[in-house]
Simulated assay, not measured.
Amino acid sequence: MDYHIPGDTVLGAVKLKISDLQRSIAFYEETVGLQVKERTATTASLSIEGGEPLVLLEQIPNAVITPPRRRTTGLYHFAILLPNRPSLGQALKRLIASGIAIGQADHLVSEALYISDPDNNGIEIYADRPRSQWKKDANGDYVMASDPIDWEGLLAAAGDLPDQGMPSGTIIGHVHLHTIGLPESRAFYHHLLGFEIVGDYQAMRALFVAAGGYHHHLGLNIWAGIGAPPSAADMTGLDYFTIIYPNGETLAAAVKRLQENGAPVQETDDGYLTTDPSGIRIRLTSNL
């Protein structure tokens, strides 16, 4: 019998390696709209007001900034999910005011804006359309596209309210990764961790997986090249992303499954760390 990850599994904080903490804090506060929750000389956690950390930053010594077009495994982008369309319109207004280069796409299941932080870590800021509007094709894959967004409609949805940063209900919606290969990613994320395949996009050279019928919690691609090497230790980029299981029992079951199948597992103060076949680190924790 196939193992399925619990449907109420979600993603948590993304930890990034960066080159200049003060510069990154300014970017994530002023451009992205998050707030500093805690800070040390070399680290910071950022969140929405009163919320759990969404982005963790660590300034590493002698950091080499990731090139815009990467040739290693690791982060393509992490995606901040806003609770509604007006808040996405407000984010668009903030990005326009900052003068940053903005990518955009209407994915049918969602509307998305794309930016990069000062260390070339990719960021998607998006809002979902209602699940009732999501469609699947004959193969059971979600129908997605990269159509132009309705810029004027988004700006109109924001109204004239003052910008107060990212609102309550903002979460990490998904993470998209450069991997060494789709068969290896399928074996680890689908067969071992139990994520459902929701998009087997062979023409796009990508695989999307999710828990609970979401359009994707993880995007897995081979755009950096099949067999791409891991990034160097001194390069900026993803340190780890977080999977949050609904309770300790489901977390323990996942850890046991990883251990029984030879995956590396390290216990930490607040959960566990494992590594996928592409050398990407994953923090495993639970809500209870």
Score class of each variant (00 low, 15 high):
residue 94 R to F: 04
residue 86 P to H: 11
residue 90 Q to I: 01
residue 56 L to H: 15
residue 163 D to R: 11
residue 162 P to H: 14
residue 279 G to T: 04
residue 45 S to T: 15
residue 54 L to R: 09
residue 232 A to E: 14
residue 282 I to S: 01
residue 34 L to F: 13
residue 80 I to D: 09
residue 26 A to C: 05
residue 147 D to A: 12
residue 15 K to W: 02
residue 52 E to F: 04
residue 82 L to E: 07
residue 271 G to Y: 01
residue 29 E to Q: 15
residue 69 R to G: 04
residue 226 I to C: 00
residue 262 G to F: 02
residue 12 G to E: 07
residue 262 G to V: 07
residue 161 L to N: 06
residue 241 F to V: 08
residue 283 R to G: 03
residue 168 S to I: 04
residue 263 A to Y: 00
residue 130 P to K: 11
residue 279 G to N: 05
residue 269 D to A: 09
residue 11 L to I: 07
residue 282 I to A: 05
residue 81 L to S: 11
residue 137 D to E: 06
residue 91 A to N: 11
residue 153 G to C: 05
residue 240 Y to W: 15
residue 198 V to P: 09
residue 98 S to C: 09
residue 149 I to P: 11
residue 51 G to Q: 11
residue 57 L to P: 07
residue 244 I to D: 01
residue 22 Q to K: 13
residue 239 D to G: 00
residue 135 K to M: 09
residue 238 L to R: 01
residue 247 N to G: 02
residue 157 A to L: 07
residue 10 V to I: 14
residue 128 D to Y: 04
residue 140 G to I: 13
residue 103 G to F: 09
residue 114 Y to Q: 00
residue 132 S to T: 15
residue 252 A to Q: 14
residue 3 Y to W: 11
residue 150 D to E: 06
residue 268 T to A: 02
residue 16 L to Y: 07
residue 251 L to T: 05
